[in-house]
Computed example of a mutant assay.
Amino acid sequence: MDPNEERRSMKALKAHFDTLHFVTDSMQGIQERCACGQRLVRERAPAEVFDYLPGKRFFTCKEYKAAVGLCSRGRARFHENEAGKCEEYKSLVVKLEVENQELKAEVEKLLARVSQLEYAHKGGG
């Protein structure tokens, strides 16, 4: 396939999928609740703030900054827990490696014993 034709085809497919994404987003409607669970407040910007778009609409939450703080504290707590789990996993891995070495040594002893028994059984001893 010609590289230019392939590029045009990919761009057309991307545009199609973008359109599908926009349609599905529009079907969901405008979000009514913030991530913190509070209702969103619909506001309009004063003309002096957005002089190129007077009366621009936007949505705010009174508890947004508090919710962001809670999320960051929750994230920090999550990472602390993960670090603790990581140390726990490391210690378990070390224990398993030691146990694995012990089992390998035991298997080698058993194989040597089997060899001795086979030799004795064949009449060599």
Results as ranks from 00 to 15, higher is better:
57 R>D: 12
58 F>I: 11
47 A>K: 06
18 D>Q: 08
120 A>C: 14
124 G>P: 00
17 F>C: 14
32 E>R: 06
94 V>F: 02
91 S>P: 03
110 L>V: 04
50 F>N: 10
125 G>Q: 06
3 P>Y: 05
21 H>D: 14
99 E>Q: 08
122 K>V: 11
31 Q>Y: 06
77 R>G: 07
39 R>N: 13
119 Y>I: 12
71 C>W: 13
80 E>V: 03
81 N>D: 14
66 A>L: 10
93 V>W: 08
111 L>T: 09
83 A>S: 06
71 C>G: 03
75 R>D: 10
95 K>W: 00
86 C>T: 07
117 L>G: 05
88 E>H: 06
30 I>S: 05
4 N>S: 14
23 V>E: 12
50 F>S: 09
46 P>D: 01
76 A>Y: 02
12 A>L: 12
123 G>C: 04
113 R>L: 14
75 R>K: 06
90 K>C: 08
13 L>Q: 09
24 T>E: 14
23 V>S: 02
88 E>P: 03
48 E>P: 01
59 F>W: 13
68 V>H: 00
77 R>D: 08
110 L>T: 00
46 P>H: 06
40 L>E: 03
122 K>Q: 08
104 K>W: 07
45 A>K: 00
1 M>A: 14
23 V>R: 03
24 T>F: 10
74 G>M: 09
69 G>S: 10
35 A>P: 11
9 S>E: 06
61 C>W: 01
17 F>V: 12
4 N>F: 11
49 V>C: 04
33 R>M: 01
99 E>L: 08
54 P>T: 03
17 F>S: 12
73 R>Q: 12
49 V>G: 09
125 G>T: 11
24 T>L: 13
48 E>W: 15
80 E>M: 08
56 K>Q: 14
60 T>P: 05
37 G>D: 00
12 A>C: 03
121 H>Q: 04
26 S>K: 15
124 G>K: 09
91 S>K: 15
115 S>T: 07
20 L>C: 11
70 L>C: 08
124 G>D: 08
54 P>M: 01
33 R>N: 11
102 E>M: 15
63 E>W: 10
101 Q>W: 04
19 T>S: 10
119 Y>L: 04
106 E>V: 06
90 K>W: 01
97 E>S: 00
109 K>E: 09
